[in-house]
Amino acid sequence: MGRRLLVAVLQMLMTVFVASLVLFALIRLAPGDPAKLLIGRTMDIAWDAAAYESTLNELRQEMGLNGSLFSQYASWIGSLLQLDLGTSFYTDRSVAAEIGERLPSTFLLAGTALIIQMAIGLFIGILSAVHSGTWFDTVVRLLCVGLASVPGFVIGLVLLLALAVQMGFYEISSQATLSRLWLPALTMGLLGAPQVIRVVRANLLGELGQVYIQSALSRGLSSTRVVWHAMRNVLLPTITLTGLSFTSYISGAVVIESIFAWPGLGEYALNGILHKDYPALQGYALVMVLSVVVIHLMVEALYVWLDPRMTRRKKEAVHE
């Protein structure tokens, strides 16, 4: 057991290392010079060419951009080993502190959205599996298709218009307070629910067709109890999906965070790209990779805990 854990942790570290290398390369290879951005768009005033060049050079030196790509990577990794994410080019603040300010809001939003997504998904998924073939099932399927075909920003803006502007009971501000949490969380939950509904429905239908269920039914067990039994086997694919959803909520909520002015990491990444703030972007990407890897590890641990004899087959076969 201890050895397995060690292997898992080693693999995790390897993933993070490779990811850090790829991320670093990608971020640094993108065109554009962060030093030029810091001097400001030259469009405001004509700089004297010589003064511009010397200022630029001085700044690049200060920002540590003059060395080779390899030495820049080495110094980044060096400071990482001392648990230092560096200093933002744009704000001159510690990247770790900035991410630390925003990480809780992102996790809060992702967690709440996940709960909503799972609640709706499991509930409607079970109902539509149990009632498969009825008009209810058909309506649910159509709605799922509809919901899965409308982009998040449209749904987000329509909800904002209705709830903030017309009804006036949602506040638009830049604060990550609990009173502002429910709407972005609900939007994300609704957008993610169809996926869960599909997985739960398909897996549950598969289970319900199994011989043991059929015989239980013929022995006169109530259908609620039968569904309950069948659900235990639907749980594993659902957990896989939960992990995947959570990771995508943490790293990919850029659009929803931006629409609802939720001060999370998505906005931070967007700003980082806008300002070509290498340390901020690298820090963000690394934290994302770390969170995702840890979540995967936790999902794995959950499997072992739920079903120690678990076969690989069940773990990996997520029916879509």
Partner: peptide, 15 residues
């Protein structure tokens, strides 16, 4: 207040 999305900024004045 920083509200990055232009549409959301507009809605914040409307609201």
């Amino acid at each position: 207040e920083q509200i990055s999305d232009e549409q959301t900024r507009m809605l914040s004045v409307f609201s």
